[in-house]
């Protein structure tokens, strides 16, 4: 079973909750799909048994030796990446989308494409099973593809090590990497908190996930910071037909656990937070995917 955990936006405690679920009892595969800000490895210090380079994309570069500065390529680029400068025609690395068009139309074959290969995929073991995570190099695109790779690797690990459960810590937002994180997963948890911003993000995340026919649940984290807003979130979920699977109180021990490289369930197994997380886990396990 693949359980994906997202939040519409970061900072709601999604990673801490994923970490807690991953360290309850049963051994699992933990897939950190927040490839833009992978964090789980900080808590779990996994072994790096496998490392794979990921080609995030390509960027066009001009060879100044062969470029005649004719400027033909400039209007073709839809991403305004090519311009005249004092050094002649240049391509902005940050603006280039890697479409190859300029390379194809340059009459002097002065443009070539270079791979961005700084992104990595790692797999290894951690203290409660296997862990797979991706790290997208700064400025790279195609995080969705890297997420797919992480998930494929996680499934392979699950088969190899006979682990039944994959926990996917998803990225923030509602874009391509999030969609890649939840497509085909069996259960989806959206973590929210009682604030107006988080409520809007929850709505957008729920709207997005509605297209995926996936069993969706909501956790309100730090619900007691504003019980009134929490109640509003609950009725919002009811209206949208999304089940509430748990309410976690605000707990300074969560950060304390983090600073000791532990999940809350490892650090304070008897705390109210850990108990609620266990309850959530049992509910999840009892559901037929």
């Amino acid at each position: 079973m693949e359980i994906a955990i997202i939040s519409g936006k970061g900072g709601t405690g999604k990673s801490s909750i994923s970490a807690a679920l991953a360290t309850l009892s049963e051994k699992v595969v933990l897939a950190d799909c927040d490839v833009d800000a992978a964090n789980q490895y900080l808590l779990f210090n996994p072994s790096h048994e496998e490392e794979q380079a990921f080609i995030g994309g390509q960027k066009a570069v001009i060879n100044p030796e062969t470029c005649t500065n004719c400027g033909i390529c400039i209007p073709y680029c839809r991403f305004d990446a090519i311009s005249f400068s004092r050094q002649g025609v240049v391509i902005s690395e940050t603006a280039c989308d890697g479409c190859h068009l300029c390379m194809r139309i340059c009459p002097h074959q002065a443009i070539s494409m270079v791979n961005s290969d700084k992104s990595r995929l790692y797999a290894g073991s951690f203290r409660n099973g296997r862990m797979v995570y991706g790290r997208l190099a700064p400025g790279e695109e195609n995080s969705g593809k890297l997420v797919n790779l992480v998930r494929d690797k996680a499934k392979e690990q699950a088969r190899k090590h006979q682990l039944d459960t994959i926990i996917i810590d998803g990225p923030p937002g509602i874009g391509c990497p999030v969609i890649s994180s939840i497509t085909g997963a069996h259960q989806l948890i959206i973590v929210t908190e009682p604030s107006l911003s988080a409520m809007l993000d929850l709505q957008r995340a729920a709207e997005m996930s509605a297209n995926f026919h996936i069993q969706t649940h909501v956790i309100i984290n730090k619900y007691d910071l504003d019980e009134d807003l929490s109640r509003q979130i609950e009725s919002l979920c009811k209206e949208a037909g999304i089940g509430m699977i748990g309410k976690i109180p605000f707990d300074p021990q969560v950060v304390e656990a983090m600073t000791h490289s532990k999940s809350i369930t490892e650090w304070a197994p008897d705390s109210a937070t850990s108990k609620e997380v266990s309850k959530i886990w049992l509910t999840l396990k009892s559901m037929k995917p």
Partner: peptide, 14 residues
């Protein structure tokens, strides 16, 4: 700015 350090972030801080 958008979160992270990938493309959307770069396009903003640029």
């Amino acid at each position: 700015a958008p979160p992270g350090t990938s493309c959307p972030f770069i396009q903003t801080v640029a």
